[in-house]
Amino acid sequence: MNRKTFINNSGRLILLGGLVYLTGSIIFKRKVSASGKYVWQIDPFKCMQCGRCSTQCVREISAVKCVHAYQLCGYCDLCGGYFKPNTHKLNTGAESQLCPTGALKRKYVEEPFFEYKIDEKLCNACGKCVKGCGSFGNGSLQLQIRHDLCQNCNECSIARMCPTNAISRVPIEAAYQIKGDFKNPALTNPK
């Protein structure tokens, strides 16, 4: 094979590879960014709240924050994300709270409903509230990478350590992956 043939064949192979990639993307519905820009994000269905989002981010206080999908929240008095499991009094005393930094705040709405908000300045992405909410509540508290804080590193140092590969690059047009669709069959056909 002469050099010219080699270059031609290589070019064909590259084109073929591109075609296969595009076809695969369509077939497997891989999300492709229209703008070609991608950002790191957490898949809340894969996240297991290992605590590494808090310790592995290159930012001094992690760019990962807890976010609240209000349409999923039960506005409960006994909130698994707010209270320590062994708490006896359902009040806002520090000794009752699960959040190590007091970032999760609650406000009385009407008996027996409470609204829960996250103070992002205090949130360190430890995921304790997410775990408590997911285990004992509706899973309305979720960890997400905040793109106003994320440096969008070439290799995300949290993703590298994530035990469930929950962090991946997603198209910038769908930068946040918050579960909260009530039409999810798992929710409308409860077991």
Binding site: Q49, T55, P85, N86, P100, G127, G132, P163
Partner: peptide, 19 residues
């Protein structure tokens, strides 16, 4: 050190083992 079995324990572990 990055292997799963070498990763540090979760300092924020949420546990209900006592129950």
């Amino acid at each position: 050190n990055s292997r799963p079995d070498k990763r540090p324990d979760n300092p924020y572990e949420y546990t209900v083992d006592q129950f």
